[in-house]
């Protein structure tokens, strides 16, 4: 399932115009209850368990309870997403714990440059009908055609 929001931990992303989970959910599922000022998953049957709300929540107030129509209770996968790695704690139904850490990026968020790797040149617009993308223009790199 569906992501769920722990009532005690959610602060409705106080002071911001929208909650982090509302901002990120690709399927428009997370909603802020304006009375309680807490978020909730308004359509769990449409939840892909992509964990983006879980990863982004500044209060760590969101977790996932695996789809109840086929998964037994008692397990969890909890991520802790840092700046360049993500740590996972996988808890089995029988209590076994596995921990993993994986890289997520090599360039810090916000530091990315769209001119890295390829020299920044002005394209020659008169060549737009020729084959080749920007990179081929910038580098003079050749490309293949079928024999």
């Amino acid at each position: 399932m569906p992501s769920f929001v722990i009532a005690e931990k959610c602060d409705g992303c106080k002071g911001q115009d929208k909650t982090a989970c509302m901002y990120i959910c690709p399927h428009d599922l997370m909603k802020l209850d304006m009375e309680s000022m807490k978020a909730w998953n308004q359509e769990p049957v449409q939840c892909w368990e992509c964990y983006n709300c879980v990863k982004i929540c500044p209060q760590q107030a969101i977790e996932v309870r695996c789809y109840a129509d086929f998964a037994p209770l008692g397990a969890s996968c909890i991520p802790m997403r840092g700046t360049d790695t993500i740590m996972w704690t996988v808890k089995f139904r029988d209590g076994m714990i596995k921990r993993f850490k994986f890289p997520i990026r090599t360039v810090e968020e916000g530091q990315l440059s769209i001119t890295a790797g390829v020299q920044d040149v002005q394209v020659d617009i008169s060549k737009i009908k020729e084959q080749g993308l920007y990179t081929q223009q910038a580098t003079g790199e050749t490309f293949q055609v079928p024999a």
Partner: peptide
Amino acid sequence: WEDFLDMSISQAGVWAAN
């Protein structure tokens, strides 16, 4: 495990739940 945790986290959940 990364194969699942990167792109199909539910499957890790199904394994753990069972």
